[in-house]
Design a protein around this nucleic acid. Sequence first.
DNA 1: TCTGGGGTCCTAGGACCC
DNA 2: TCTGGGGTCCTAGGACCC
Length: 422
Amino acid sequence: MTSLFALVDCNNFYASCERAFNPSLIGKPVVVLSNNDGCVIARSNEAKALGIKMGVPAFEMAALVKTQEVQVFSSNYELYGDMSRRVVETLRQFTPNLEVYSIDESFLDLGNLRGVDLGAYAHSIKATVQQWTGIPVAVGVAPTKTLAKIANRLSKKSAKAGGVLVLTDERHITEALKRTDISDVWGVGRRYAKKLAAFGVHTAWDLRNVTDAFAKKHFTVVGLRTVRELRGEACLDLELVPPSKQNICTSRSFARRLTELQDIEQALTSHAVRCATKLRKQKSCAGALTVFLETSRFAGEGQLYYNSRTLSLASATSSELELLRCALMALRSIYRPGYRYKKTGIILQDIVPANQVQLSLLDSGNRERDARLMGTLDALRERFGHTCVGYGVQGTGKVWAMKKDHISPCYTTRLADLLQVK
DNA sequence: TCTGGGGTCCTAGGACCC
DNA sequence: TCTGGGGTCCTAGGACCC
């Protein structure tokens, strides 16, 4: 019994989410910007056709926005997250064995569908998601995840495929691999693509035909796995339950440069609270944390600064009181006056399940009291929004708050926003 | 003026131990 | 002058993903 996977990928996901609730955008070039309206992270097909590249800074696009009436949106993760959940719930109608790979991609196990018309099945997945959520998707089906990725990608490129491609026949797989550039293979990034090209490996077909020894020597066991997957040998299973995270990070660029420690403390406090909330959500505790502080990478000579400080906790905790105290201590130790700072953030590390925490003899805090307080805070924030309760050091001014000049309404999660829709 | 945020995994090499 | 060898743990850095 051979394996069979489908990769369902939402087309231009963030742009499609904006469109799903605003039909006047259909047929127009739409782009979605990163946090702080920094650079382009999603484009509709019309925007791609105008030559707008992924990752370009928003200001470089100004002329096109004017002349071509490009519709620009700040990112609205509340909306995209909710739409993502709707898509996944729809996909669950088709198989109980599903891996949510990212906000806009899921792998489905179709291993029990031998004898079924796979093309028709894939088409019905696509049509159902479109009908139930308004989000267009592409479906690629193949014996391994890596091949399903390739099938998915080709399904979007060919007008004939129309967003669905089944690669089970050896002849079709060979043809697909010959048409796929090495850098478009899942797991091969820019660096490896360059290195492979130097060995005369240019297409996925070339890569499939290298020896195991070559793959292992130059691209580690990860690369070898990719080669085997290209040959149709499934090495990557579906991850039905998302593994709990080993690091949890929250960081943001400031809307404008900050110079004062107090302002940066406000930002870091908010990040630490968010980060600790994520930690408790996966029922874990952290044994260490790192705080970093940096100027813009584009700052001039002598104005560049980056520093970070890692602190270990006496025993792992999920109390934001403790984490916050440590984070601020770390920040104060790396802050230097005289720089124009761009970004700060916190990374929680040495993460363990909350029920396996080793208590330290030096542990001085009142763990039970803190745990009750955290439970209350989580419940309040869940109900009234993340900013409803905070700390004095957070301030109320939000001098660091993100720029979001083009935000759309949270159509799916806020009644007030929905009522405003005309 | 303006350039995102969040993750994972693997390896090499040093420290340290017996 | 001789200057083992094997194992483990940790960390930094490099590569990748969305």
